[in-house]
Design a protein around this nucleic acid. Structure first.
Lengths: 239, 239
DNA sequence: TCAAAAGTGTTGGCCATACACCCATGT
DNA sequence: ACATGGGTGTATGGCCAACACTTTTGA
């Protein structure tokens, strides 16, 4: 931080890029926007934009999130800094350093595509390929981070509406991890963690027609998960 | 990323800040430099500097790490992006966005204080207070991250010289966590994790004069730790 | 009456904690 | 001889995966 003067640096542009996830129809989806101009015109990309002079990167990310999703109250949504991508040449025109964020939403407000992007669309994660710039990598990093964080934080509730059933919560895990979990054990683990979820005293909701109505829960106040809820070892890992 | 033009942004300065940790005399130390000019002249700060036009933030961090520590081969050392600090006003003069890194070194090359900093010094973590800018927060974030990563990665070997004893490795954990661990159990857990450490076939080294000579180990190739090595619950946590 | 989903009970095995104990070296 | 640190053995208890079972609804 020493030895700088006004001319000691070349100006950098600082942007934010957002990997916004939701779960729809049992599949992980990510919000993409279609680029209207070169470079990468017509290609899909992560939403994002410039950090303004008077705001932090977090502020910019939250503002963009609101603009792109059309959500008015974006204050309570989970937004997490992922990492910063700074390779020279990641934008062909100029030096752009981008602070990437991961955001999690409950099943999506269908409306999206406000802001300055041409179009916006929820895309199944598996089909979010060949994105502009280095966004393929960013979205892969974000997905890995989200998957890992489900293990040891209470993050999964961020994918759920304000009131949800344990079955829905379990589907979040199963969708993000691509694995199936044992329902009785999942239930016990969640309920055994104080502050993960809290029961809603009143009603019970129908699951989708068939089956016993499930109890409703709200997100609790805890942030960390002790002990963690580990994803099943994919194959013969020593653990 | 849409809608930019050469004038669409105010120039930001982009810097890196490094929280470089080592273990000395059984205590966690962090590398600090003394600032030679305003603001915060005379105060201690994290080493760091501007990202140059032709290098990434990682490249800048590695370069600064070499300059500040005097290490010539800095290629194998653990360097990890922590997060980016971008609050407006974190530097009183101008808009500076800083990408912070955490680095881990084996017991320190005594020589430090090259580069453009006035002086540099290894400081016990507990005395690294009232640093310049928001560096108090950065160093605290870095310490927390390192402590957490010891649980589920093989990172601890980054604090050790190329060949080390299990006792030294255990001291890394005990120092960073501020807890004592059971030696037999620690040993078993480490050896039960394939790729964490590998035995050095040849010699055994004296521990410091007294005691039975300890076997030597090298860092293995594994990155993750399954199952994790959890820090002892400080006090009656439900886990 | 059956299917489907929620929820409860139970058991067996694994692992980790705690601690006892032996080994090798310097003083 | 003893202190010091390295290393091995072992048993108890807790946790968890697996699965059987009951409950409540819609069709």
């Amino acid at each position: 931080m020493d030895g700088y003067a006004k001319h000691a640096f070349e100006p950098f542009a600082v942007t934010v890029d957002l990997a916004v996830f939701t779960i729809r129809a049992g599949a992980l989806h990510v919000l993409l926007v279609e680029r209207g101009q070169e470079p990468y015109a017509g290609r899909w990309a992560l939403p994002g934009g410039f950090v303004r002079p008077d705001e932090s990167a977090e502020g910019a990310a939250r503002r963009e999130l609101g603009e792109e999703t059309g959500l008015t109250d974006v204050s309570g949504l989970h937004l997490e800094q992922l990492r910063t991508y700074s390779e020279p040449g990641r934008d062909p025109r100029m030096r752009v350093v981008s602070v990437a964020f991961a955001a999690l939403l409950p099943d999506a407000p269908e409306a999206c595509g406000g802001g300055d992007a041409a179009r916006a669309r929820w895309t199944p994660y598996d089909r979010a390929r060949e994105l502009a710039f280095d966004h393929d990598r960013i979205v892969a990093d974000a997905r890995e981070r989200v998957g890992a964080k489900l293990e040891y934080t209470c993050l999964a509730t961020a994918f759920c509406p304000p009131e949800f059933t344990l079955g829905e919560l379990q589907q979040v895990y199963e969708t993000v991890w691509g694995a199936t979990l044992d329902r009785p054990n999942f239930r016990r683990k969640v309920l055994a963690t104080p502050g993960f979820v809290e029961a809603v005293p009143g009603a019970a909701r129908l699951t989708g027609g068939r089956g016993k109505p499930a109890a409703l829960y709200r997100a609790g106040t805890a942030a960390a998960l002790h002990p963690p809820l580990l994803r099943p070892t994919p194959e013969g890992r020593p653990a």
